[in-house]
Design a protein around this nucleic acid. Structure first.
Length: 313
DNA sequence: AACACCTACAACCGCAATGAA
DNA sequence: ATTCATTGCGGTTGTAGGTGT
């Protein structure tokens, strides 16, 4: 499997599948010189491979401690849990699975777990959160983290909401643009981000600051919890909110003080390290959670494109 | 048997971070 | 402070082998 054709590039380097002889040269080199200095390898051994290719071959295939094939149930469970927590940070996930490479886990995820999860929740609403800045991505499917990238079976039906680039230091608000339910966008201002973060710790519990003080990970955790309980009623509410907001007017009142008080773990003090409160009786519904996202468009927010949330059927 | 399609996975690519010069 | 090389990461691609028709 994999690639087999051997190509010589313009600079005389070989690309494509590695031969047994090349592997042998690489292994011998690493035995003698240790890992690293990959660029020197080609020079010193005459191997017609770039350093990058050598490193990849060693890390993903030739390393003696690599465990190959048959990912166990325990490993799979761990991968799923880690992915739920970290998104597509394959190297971090691989770091928790001795002998497994990031490439292997990525391949396994893309070819097996994602499909399995899709099959498991074929008709459930899904939500995908993408933190482009942190390079984190979480797909929630009825509360279960799914795959990276493509949301299942709803191509052309995504609603996109773009949030601020850094949950810890920025507000989440702004006008929706786009064409209604098909692809609404939530926008924000990076200049405003600076203003708000400078008042952190002193600000009142406005809905904006409610979101403001969470790291993207904490925010994802909140969404994970809330969306496990997402039902048609608040899906509709959310969709109505998006539709109405496309006119650019204030749609929903801010989160009530009552909601804020009932969710002490979600207060602005979370910035100091509090974790989201997972007590059911104190849960904010998905619609409540997202109400603060739809604020007055006259605020002058500009586009920020570092975090996406996709709602999909 | 032949062909088309699917799956698994090795390898490549582009980008960002890091460190040395 | 800047430039450049190296390293590491995640996304994507290409292909052998498997499976279905």
């Amino acid at each position: 499997m994999g690639r087999s054709s051997r190509i010589s590039s313009k600079d005389g380097l070989t690309k494509g599948a590695w031969s047994a002889l090349e592997d042998e040269i690489l292994v011998d080199y690493v035995k003698t010189h240790g890992e690293g200095k990959w660029s020197n390898l080609a020079k010193q051994t005459g191997l017609k491979r770039c350093g990058k290719s050598c490193r990849l071959r060693w890390m993903n295939y030739l390393r003696p401690d690599i465990k190959r094939g048959n990912i166990s149930g325990d490993e799979e469970e761990l991968i799923m849990r880690m992915h739920k927590l970290l998104g597509n940070r394959w190297s971090l996930i691989a770091g928790r699975l001795p002998g497994r490479t990031d490439n292997e886990i990525k391949n396994y995820w893309n070819s097996y777990i994602a499909k399995k999860a899709k099959d498991q929740f074929p008709s459930t609403r899904s939500v995908e959160i993408i933190d482009k800045k942190a390079d984190a991505r979480v797909d929630l499917h009825g509360g279960v983290a799914l795959s990276s990238g493509v949301c299942p079976q709803q191509q052309g039906k995504e609603d996109v909401i773009q949030l601020n680039p850094d949950m810890k230091n920025a507000a989440v608000t702004g006008p929706l643009s786009g064409n209604g339910l098909t692809k609404p966008k939530l926008e924000l201002s990076k200049s405003r981000v600076g203003q708000l973060s400078s008042t952190s710790g002193e600000v009142e519990n406005t809905p904006t600051n409610f979101i403001l003080d969470f790291s993207s990970e904490e925010f994802c955790n909140m969404l994970d919890y809330d969306f496990a309980k997402l039902n048609d009623a608040n899906i509709n509410e959310l969709e109505n909110a998006i539709e109405a907001e496309s006119g650019g007017t204030l749609l929903n009142p801010p989160l009530s003080q009552e909601i804020m008080e009932n969710n002490g773990g979600f207060s602005s003090s979370a910035a100091e390290g509090d974790q989201p409160n997972n007590n059911n009786s104190n849960m904010v519904s998905a619609a409540d959670l997202f109400q603060p996202l739809f604020l007055d468009s006259n605020d002058g927010w500009q586009l920020g494109d570092d975090i996406d949330i996709l709602f999909s059927n």
